[in-house]
């Protein structure tokens, strides 16, 4: 591996200023600024098409930057792509496993791409098979595995070069709840070991579980930045009361809910009342003689932050 001169500013692992990606006339990432510190777990949160994947691919040095500054591990992807990639672990949105190879061969050959010796690849592959709980599937063809197993193998594969920085694009999208929790557990262990994680997600619970700090992206721009807790405090109330009315009634309520909460959101299927005391808000609704079909009081989540920032829900 060629020796890299020490970076001038060793503190942030990723440093982006005015980072922009355009495809023809379409702007996928529009002049975003952010830094990721060593050991941090950093998230891009946003709906599909917000520009998260484009940002990740630029960081992964497989997509040329259109304009702005980007430094990854202290270096410029345009000139040091291979050297940077040698120190990254990448989990793409869609599994890119080698279907023509077995589970173990996938790990070994991937290690070989990084220039590791065959013996070293074999040793790490066995270790990672244990880590990903795939040891007994070692000789299976990848094609016939479940989605959750493929995902774990992809993560194991991305660890073969003992990366300093991991890029995870939608790591648990499409998995069933059990498989997601297993994956979160594995990612949490990596975090404990001091690996820096950068991930994108449109799942609020995932962002809250895994991210120390995140940026909310919408329409190619960053619209807010902070820890999950601080974002909720800044952009939402402590609690939310969700009301569901019979079809057709919701639209006739204009004005009758006024003053019950700090903020009211009308969604197609429900109405959200933002108040620090959700139970009180629910009681007040009944006092006004309104009879929702269902009432749910819950704590505010990043979903609410997103709704507040963009006027849309994340699931769209």
């Amino acid at each position: 591996m060629p020796h890299l001169p020490d970076a001038t500013d060793p503190s942030p692992l990723i440093h982006a200023r005015g980072l922009t990606k355009r495809f023809g006339s379409f702007t996928a990432v529009d002049a975003i600024d952010f830094d990721v510190a060593p050991g941090e777990s950093f998230g891009f949160l946003g709906p599909n098409g917000a520009g998260k994947t484009s940002a990740m691919r630029m960081i992964g040095c497989v997509s040329p930057v259109t304009s702005g500054t980007l430094r990854v591990l202290g270096h410029d992807p345009a000139s040091h792509g291979p050297q940077i990639r040698a120190r990254l672990g990448v989990v793409p949105q869609q599994d890119t496993l080698d279907n023509e190879l077995t589970v173990r061969e996938n790990l070994v050959i991937y290690g070989r791409y990084f220039g590791l010796s065959r013996a070293e690849c074999g040793r790490r592959a066995d270790e990672l098979l244990d880590f990903a709980q795939l040891a007994e599937r070692s000789g299976d063809q990848v094609e016939h595995m479940s989605g959750g197993m493929k995902r774990r193998l992809t993560i194991a594969r991305s660890l073969i070069n003992e990366p300093e920085l991991m890029l995870l694009d939608e790591p648990t999208t499409g998995l069933d709840p059990q498989a997601r929790h297993l994956l979160w557990d594995r990612l949490y262990r990596l975090k404990q070991r001091g690996v820096t994680l950068v991930l994108t997600t449109h799942y609020m619970d995932e962002a809250e579980q895994l991210c120390d700090r995140l940026v909310v992206m919408d329409k190619a721009k960053i619209v807010a930045e902070g820890s999950p807790r601080s974002l909720i405090e800044r952009y939402s109330t402590r609690e939310v009361t969700e009301l569901r009315f019979a079809p057709g009634i919701g639209e006739t309520l204009d004005g009758r809910l006024e003053g019950l909460a700090e903020r009211i959101e009308h969604l197609p299927d429900r109405i959200l009342l933002y108040a620090d005391d959700g139970e009180a808000a629910a009681a007040a609704v009944h006092q006004r003689g309104l009879q929702p079909e269902a009432v749910l009081v819950r704590r505010s989540s990043l979903e609410d932050v997103f709704l507040r920032l963009t006027g849309r829900s994340l699931a769209d």
Partner: peptide, 14 residues
Amino acid sequence: YNKTFTAILSTPLS
């Protein structure tokens, strides 16, 4: 179809 190369590009190979 196989996306073999997509995965390889995340390694030092060009």
